[in-house]
């Protein structure tokens, strides 16, 4: 890894560590037409803030993270009014400058921990790749211990297939934290794990995030999991944020019917109320509010015009008929 850190990274940060305004992402199809998968996406994170992006499959939550990381494929088009990480303007930065952000400023962990590791290299080798050049084995072991790995020295000599899913995810968390990133994107990091191991990883992430004063963007479809690690959340539906606000208030008194629908669809609280219908695919988004065809509160205006943002203290909702003022 290139170890030239940007000089400004060393200074105390002022202002947001991540500032996204009006981000939109489109993919080019075989017919040379563009399909928009994410629109009007805003996210501003200060140092040490933990926020969550909640949404069902295809809502655009992973795309938002990949756009910031610069990991989208070549057929993607990223546009934004503002896209800044650390002190770098990602819209104008060279690929090399963007690359240098990965590690010290931006890091990411993914859903399938074992798929993210190279099966033919030891844990220690891969971990040291992520660490500053010349890091010692002792430092690698200390890093593994930091993320709660039992017997870290022995684990450094292990190959990925010798690890359980939970241990593999700890290795990836260690790799992501190796350069003390300002922002960690965690994309469904516990979805593939058992509940007992999920509880361990969530506790570890929440602890590290708070102790290291790192900003975290936790991406998940699971409202319960999100409520355990974040103090703020954005709810994404069909490529656009429909509501955002502080937790747990957002889940306690949602204003958007979709957020309420997600909560009602959670099993384990008496009567289950499914949301009828299907999430529309990108390219088939209805005009007006995209949730209108499935919404129990929809009226004529919802089908015609995109609702404006209604802003309260530290929350906002995009709905013509919100559940609360």
């Amino acid at each position: 890894m290139n170890s030239t850190a940007l000089p400004q990274q060393e200074q105390p940060r002022q202002g947001p560590v991540l500032d996204i305004q009006g981000l939109s992402v489109a993919f080019r199809s075989h017919h040379q037409t563009w399909t928009t998968v994410l629109e009007h996406f805003d996210l501003r994170l200060e140092q040490g803030q933990a926020t969550a992006i909640v949404g069902e499959s295809g809502s655009g939550k992973t795309v938002a993270a990949l756009a910031v990381m610069g990991l989208l494929p070549g057929y993607a088009r990223v546009e934004a009014r503002r896209l800044q990480a650390g002190n770098l303007d990602l819209l104008t930065a060279t690929p090399k400058a963007r690359r240098s952000l990965l590690g010290p400023t931006l890091a990411m962990i993914f859903q399938e921990p074992r798929a993210s590791l190279n099966p033919s290299l030891t844990v220690g080798y891969q971990l040291k790749e992520a660490m500053p050049r010349g890091s010692t084995t002792a430092a690698a072991a200390a890093l593994l211990a930091e993320v709660g790995m039992a017997d870290p020295r022995a684990r450094l000599r292990a190959f990925p297939h010798e690890l359980s899913g939970g241990m593999a995810q700890r290795v990836l968390i260690a790799m992501a934290l190796a350069r003390k990133p300002a922002v960690l994107f965690a994309d469904e990091p516990t979805t593939a794990l058992d509940v007992t191991v999920q509880a361990q990883i969530l506790a570890q992430l929440a602890d590290l995030q708070q102790r290291q004063r790192m900003a975290m963007v936790f991406i998940s479809h699971d409202l319960a999991v999100v409520s355990q690690v974040a103090r703020h959340a954005l709810v994404l539906y069909a490529g656009a944020v429909v509501e955002e606000g502080a937790l747990p208030e957002l889940f306690k008194h949602p204003a958007h019917p979709y957020t309420q629908g997600l909560i009602n669809a959670l099993p384990g609280q008496g009567d289950l109320q499914p949301i009828s219908g299907l999430v529309p695919s990108p390219g088939q988004w209805p005009p007006g509010c995209r949730f209108a065809p499935r919404c129990p509160r929809a009226s004529a205006v919802c089908h015609e015009t995109l609702p404006p943002w209604l802003t309260a203290d530290n929350s906002r909702v995009r709905c013509h008929h919100p559940l609360r003022p």
């Binding site: 969530l202 506790a203 929440a206 602890d207 409202l223 319960a224 355990q228 690690v229 747990p248």
Partner: peptide, 20 residues
């Protein structure tokens, strides 16, 4: 205990895991 619950009150974030 390990099953994630929707946090609706002021309780702290992700508590200690019940099983190591």
């Amino acid at each position: 205990q390990a099953a994630p619950k929707l946090r609706l009150g002021a309780e702290p974030l992700a508590p200690h895991a019940p099983l190591p």
